[in-house]
Design a protein around this nucleic acid. Structure first.
Lengths: 239, 239
DNA sequence: TTAGTTCAGGTCAAATTGACTATAACTAAG
DNA sequence: CTTAGTTATAGTCAATTTGACCTGAACTAA
C-alpha cells in the first residue's frame, strides 16, 4: 500500500492525491569571498537529477520517513546530501502554496542550519553539490529563491536579537571575527569599539588568556561562547 | 485511489502510511475575567466526537484540502468550527513528533489567530464548542497543551516587539484599554504614564478627537491603529 | 627606527527607560 | 452644591543605553 503515488501514477492522479510532505533545509556557512578577505554567507545546493526542474539547483531535501521526527529528518537529510553536521538547526516555516511544484501538491517543512567554518571547509563539493553565495543566487528550482530570502530574513533578525552568530564560528574567536560575522549577515559596518563594548557586556561571552598569533598587527585576544549549543532540546522549542 | 488510508484501514496500516497532514489553529481573544473586570486571554476549543481522545477538548483543526493554501485552510477551518473571522492570522509551527496521535502519524501545521472582542462576543458556544481561559486549561487532547503554551510564548514575544496587540481590540480604543491588553498578555503591571508616552511616540497610533463617554471618571481620549491589517499579503510572509 | 595597522580602553552627548510628582476632568457621595 | 475619590494627562529627573569619536598599546613590515 505504500508508494501508491509514485512515479507510475500520472499527473492528474498526483494532483488529486493528498499533499505530499517534504523536508528541506537552508544551510548557511561563512566563507571568505573571492575578491576581498571579508567572510560572506554561502550555502550548499544540490542539482536536481530528475524532473521537474531537472538540472537546476535546489535546496537539499527529501521525503519525511515515518520513523523520524521533523528535526531528525532535516538533520539526516543534511548529512546525506551534503555530509554536513550543523551546529545550529531550527524550523523555518512550512511552505504549502498550491503551485509550488508543477506536477503535484507538495508541502515543504523547511529548516535552516548554521555550520561552522571548519565543517564548511571540508564539505565535499561534487558534480551535484556546490556552494553558492547566498546573496547572489540565480534561478533555483521550485519556490526555493523565496525560501532562501525568507531564511535570510530570519537569520538577520535572529542575529540582531539572539546569540546565533556564534554558531557560524568555531569555539575560539576574536572580537574582530565576531564583528565580521555580524557585518556579513547584517550587511553594514559596525563600530569596532562600540561592538566590543556590547559583546563584552554579555555574560555568555568568556575572555580567554589566549591570543591569536600570526596576524600582521597587534595580536587580538581570543574569546569563547559559553551559552547553550544550538542543537539541544530547548532549541527544538517543542516536543 | 483516494482515501486508501481512511477509517477502514487498521492501525498498523495507518502507522505505516505516509504521515497525514492536518491544520490546527490557536485562537486568542480578550474577555473580561469572571471575578475582576480586567480582560484576560480566552480561546475556543472543540470537543472531540471520535477516538482518539473522544470527549476531550482540542484545538479546532482538520485535514488540508488540496485546493487551498495552508493559510486558507486555517482560515476556513476557523470559520467552520467556531464561526469566527480573525483579525490576525499567522503560521505558528509545524508539529511532527512521532507519537502525537496514538493511532497514526500526524504532522500538524498550526496557525495562531487573534480576534476582536466584538467577534469573540457573538461567537456561538455549543455543546461541542466552548471558550476557556488560556492560562487555566486542563488536559487537552493530543499534545495540544504544548501547542497552546508555545502559542502563548509567541504571542507574548510578538506583543513585546511588534504591534499585534491592536488586533485584540476594536477600531477605537483608549490607552487604558490598550494597556490592559499588554498587561493581560505579558502578565505584569505597566506604568500608565510611561506606557502612554511610549504608545504616543509610535507613528502608527493616531489620536482622534473622540472621547469615551459613560465611564465613572474623566473621559479618556480614543485612539486608532493605522498600521497595516494582520491579514494582508505581507503578513503571510511568503508566497 | 619608523610608518602603518589593528587592538583595547576610554570619554561625551543624545536618546531611551523607569520611577515618580502634579494637575485636569470627570463621577458619586454627602 | 460641595467635596472626596478616581482616572487621564503632562511633566520631571536620574539611571541606562547608544552612537560618535579619541588616545594609547602592541604588533609587522619597510
Amino acid at each position: 500500500m505504500i508508494g501508491v503515488y509514485s512515479s507510475s501514477a500520472n499527473v492528474s492522479e498526483r494532483l488529486a492525491a493528498p499533499p505530499s510532505l517534504a523536508i528541506s533545509t537552508v544551510i548557511f556557512a561563512l566563507r571568505p569571498s573571492a575578491a576581498t578577505a571579508r567572510p560572506t554567507l554561502w550555502m550548499p545546493l544540490v542539482r536536481r537529477i530528475r524532473e521537474p526542474f531537472k538540472g537546476q539547483w535546489a535546496l537539499p531535501g527529501g521525503p519525511l520517513s515515518h520513523t523520524e521526527s521533523l528535526q531528525d529528518a532535516a538533520s539526516r537529510n543534511l548529512r546525506e546530501t551534503t555530509g554536513l553536521a550543523p551546529s545550529y538547526l531550527e524550523q523555518l516555516y512550512a511552505f504549502g502554496g498550491l503551485h509550488r511544484s508543477p506536477t503535484q501538491r507538495v508541502v515543504s517543512i523547511v529548516y535552516w542550519a548554521l555550520v561552522q567554518p571548519t565543517e564548511a571547509a571540508l564539505a565535499a563539493e561534487s558534480e551535484n553539490v556546490k556552494w553558492f553565495r547566498a546573496d547572489r543566487l540565480d534561478q533555483l528550482a521550485f519556490d526555493h529563491n523565496d525560501i532562501v530570502d525568507y531564511a535570510l530574513g530570519r537569520l538577520r533578525s535572529k542575529v540582531a536579537y539572539s546569540s546565533v552568530a556564534y554558531h557560524l564560528l568555531g569555539e575560539y574567536f576574536t572580537l574582530a571575527q565576531l564583528r565580521e560575522v555580524y557585518e556579513a549577515v547584517l550587511d553594514r559596518q559596525l563600530d569596532p569599539a562600540n561592538f566590543r563594548r556590547q559583546v563584552r557586556s554579555t555574560p555568555e561571552i568568556q575572555e580567554t588568556d589566549q591570543y591569536l598569533q600570526g596576524g600582521k598587527h597587534r595580536p587580538p585576544r581570543l574569546y569563547r561562547f559559553t551559552g547553550r549549543p544550538g542543537l539541544d532540546q530547548d532549541n527544538r522549542s517543542t516536543p
